[in-house]
Amino acid sequence: MSGRAIVITSGKGGVGKTTATANLGVGLAKHGRKVVMVDGDIGLRNLDIIMGLENRIVYHLVDVVRGRCQVRQALVKDKRFPNLCLLPASQVDQKEAITPEQMRDLTAQLREEFDFVLIDCPAGIEQGFRNAVAGADEAIVITTPDVSPVRDADRVIGLLQSSLGDPQLIINRLSTDMVRRGDMLNQQDVLDILAVRLLGIVPEDEEVVIAGNRGSPVILNARSRSGQAYERIVRRILGEEVAIPEFNGSGSLINRLGRLFLRR
């Protein structure tokens, strides 16, 4: 068996890589897949706290690579899904503590056992990025509809195309209100500029902050807009055809009111 190794990357920091990794991990596990999430951000680990698993870490990625423990010993089992694991990053080492070759070997080992290996990439395009990308065979680029993340996403897409081919794009934190006012790039604008395939759009949602506070990814909150968006993305990754709803804020107030009534 050989699972899919997907790196989640962005170039720019703070656009939601870790949040996306956590939600995709939980979502794929909810659909019964065996999933391991690898925190590639050595020195600045965060996937553990977003997942609510920060108190269970014994060994980490660098321990595994250095042979200080077995992979099995470093994997932290999720408390909600027995088929979901986290391989935490080290908090004390530097990005240079491991090499792309070591990362490639580790990923190869993990995909023997898991259906999905999700690699949370650190910000930037230096060694940490090269490590995270080394073992992957697919990439998801995440951006928000702001000028600097889009610019950095373009750079990262260029770098990925030479090794992994075309990545897929997630547009995160899109504000329907601002799009409606013409004060935010919409889905089409971002796609025109970046020219890659769209995997999904996650609307701006306060629930993401609350989910982070609780260590319980927002996809577990089936009533949240962002949770529903992640659920659709997960199903697309699994090969289902799921339409991407328009977050263009299209329609006047009357239209929107109409929709509100029609919903029942």
Partner: peptide, 12 residues
């Protein structure tokens, strides 16, 4: 109009 057009043009 909104600031979006400016963002789009500058980015391109």
């Amino acid at each position: 109009k909104g600031s979006k057009e400016e963002a789009r043009n500058r980015l391109q």
